[in-house]
């Protein structure tokens, strides 16, 4: 999807911030259809405004000020939406980045500071509109910095490594099964084997996937 003036929704609980972002986006040629102060307002706007190309969404918002934006994204994806979403995060957290990208295609994860960089922000909006993935350079730098192969990963079979790579791209078990022409049950047992070999236990399922991908990323260079 590509149009000259992307229709964008800005969601942030800070009034001045979302106003600033709106101005930056407008100046860069976007059409800011609405702004919202929290997740509920965002959902409401989305049902009202069907023709939205992308959402610029702050992760940390009321009520708990932890990961509301990310949860909203996961809810959107769970409801089958392919809307482009650029998440804004105050800190570049690899965990959050992976969770964001794992939610599905058309997702970006940027440091909030980037909003003053109109070019980067609009580029990200356009990328996610087109179903692409954006991860903030600073986070990528963090992920690849240790640059030591992980001994744990060497214990994975080729097939398991393939499954892990697809997990890192954000595929669900079902998606992986389709791509590798395997039964979902087989994929599930591969995933379980990966978790065991990487010694990732007793965490919520989504975290387990994130942690597994973290290890892959850290071993990737």
């Amino acid at each position: 999807m590509s149009r000259e003036h992307p229709r964008v929704l800005v969601v942030d609980d800070g009034l001045l911030i979302r106003e600033g972002i709106r101005q930056v986006l407008v100046a860069a040629g976007c059409d800011v259809v609405a702004v919202a102060g929290d997740v509920a307002e965002m959902m409401e706007t989305l049902t009202r405004e069907s023709d939205v190309d992308a959402v610029v969404l702050d992760i940390r918002m009321p009520p708990t000020h932890t990961d509301e934006g990310l949860k909203a994204l996961e809810d959107l994806r769970a409801s089958g939406s392919h809307l482009g979403v650029v998440l804004l995060s105050m800190y570049g957290s690899p965990t959050l980045a992976i969770r964001a990208t794992a939610a599905g295609a058309g997702t970006g994860y940027l440091l909030k500071d980037r909003v003053t960089d109109a070019d980067m922000l609009v580029r990200a909006v356009r990328t996610v509109m087109g179903g692409g993935t954006v991860v903030d350079p600073e986070v990528v730098a963090q992920l690849v910095s240790p640059a030591h192969p992980r001994s744990d990963l060497r214990r994975l079979t080729d097939r398991e490594r393939e499954v892990l790579r697809l997990m890192a791209e954000g595929s669900s078990n079902l998606g992986i099964a389709g791509r590798l022409v395997l039964s979902p049950k087989t994929v599930e047992s591969h995933v379980a084997a990966i978790m065991t070999k990487l010694r990732i236990e007793s965490v919520r399922e989504e975290h387990r996937r994130v942690l597994a991908v973290l290890r892959l990323l850290r071993a990737s260079e």
Binding site: R60, T64, T66, D67, L70, M90, Y91, S93, P94, T95, L96, R99, Q142, L143, S145, P146, I200, V203, R204, H207, V210, L211, L214, R218
Partner: peptide, 19 residues
Amino acid sequence: AVLNHGGLDAALEELALRC
């Protein structure tokens, strides 16, 4: 902040990443 949204294991992973 990662402790709040990612739990202890994720937070420790991030510490390890930066080491």
